[in-house]
């Protein structure tokens, strides 16, 4: 059992969904990104997604784009992301990296997997790597005991859902809307249908993301998903904060609110 498998065994036993929180490494600085991750874990995040800032994030909306740009301008490097993973894993929360593919390929797929595993990382979420192109990553993840979290979408055919679920481990990342990352007023009606289609082809845990920004929305999603994934709303806490401590406090509070939601209270 990987750390992620253990987490889902526990949350299922507790009758709740897991809370997954995303923050980019190196935003607004390496030190602060670590403190922000610690704050969200203290607030109740179960699984941490560390974002690797990338120059061309086609799946991301304005909030995460702005954070990634700022992190890159501040000089964030791939090795810094590994350091942030190490600090995040030290909180005890299973930690995965969410990254576009080119930085991994450039670092070396095996070398990246080895560094990630060495830092205590649990796996990778790959928004622009589909299983069809992932042979090298599948081999590396098996060698280093890492989970492979692939994405599915409302547009995925049943055949692709089955193929992707089969290739994935840890959990499956279901994008609940056709669109990019970012907080939305309402949760998507497409989420429940997508998860229902997935349930027919897999019993692996399903996390649902894109658009969740508060406890009420988290509660809605927790009704049908094994994990609720929140990104932009957490990043926004840091973007909008007047100072460091206000930002960290906002993250902690949002995580608490989201956690209450996923506990289905």
């Amino acid at each position: 059992m990987t750390a992620i498998d253990e987490l889902f065994a526990r949350t299922r036993a507790e009758g709740r969904a897991a809370l997954v929180g995303y923050l980019p490494a190196g935003f607004p600085s390496k030190e602060l990104s670590i403190k922000a991750i610690e704050a969200m874990v203290e607030g109740g995040v179960d699984l941490v997604e560390v974002g690797l800032p990338y120059s061309d994030p086609v799946m991301d909306g304005p909030t995460i784009q702005a954070a990634a740009e700022q992190a890159l301008r501040a000089g964030s490097r791939t090795t810094d992301v590994i350091d942030v993973v190490r600090a995040s894993a030290a909180t005890g929360a299973p930690t995965v990296v969410m990254t576009y593919w080119n930085p991994v390929e450039r670092f070396g797929v095996n070398r990246f997997a080895e560094a990630l595993a060495g830092a205590g990382g649990a796996g990778l979420i790959t928004p622009d790597l589909i299983p069809d192109e992932a042979a090298e990553w599948v081999a590396a993840s098996e060698q280093f005991g890492l989970d492979r979290i692939f994405l599915v979408a409302p547009s995925s055919t049943d055949e692709r859902l089955a193929m992707t679920a089969d290739a994935a481990s840890g959990f499956i990342y279901a994008t609940a809307v056709m669109g990019v990352t970012g907080a939305r007023e309402q949760t998507s009606a497409l989420g429940p249908e997508l998860v229902a289609r997935l349930r027919k082809v897999t019993d692996k845990p399903v996390g649902v993301g894109l658009g969740v920004s508060n406890g009420d929305q988290a509660r809605e999603v927790a009704e049908f998903a094994d994990a609720v994934i929140v990104g932009s709303a957490l990043v926004r806490c840091l973007l909008d904060a007047e100072d460091e401590s206000a930002g960290l406090e906002a993250i902690r509070r949002l995580a608490q609110d989201l956690r209450a939601g996923v506990e289905r209270n």
Partner: peptide, 18 residues
């Protein structure tokens, strides 16, 4: 599958594959 030798392919979000 759109490969020219080792080049090409599809490195895209799953949402756009269909």
């Amino acid at each position: 599958t759109g490969h020219f030798g080792r080049f090409g392919g599809r490195f895209m979000p799953e949402a756009l594959i269909a």
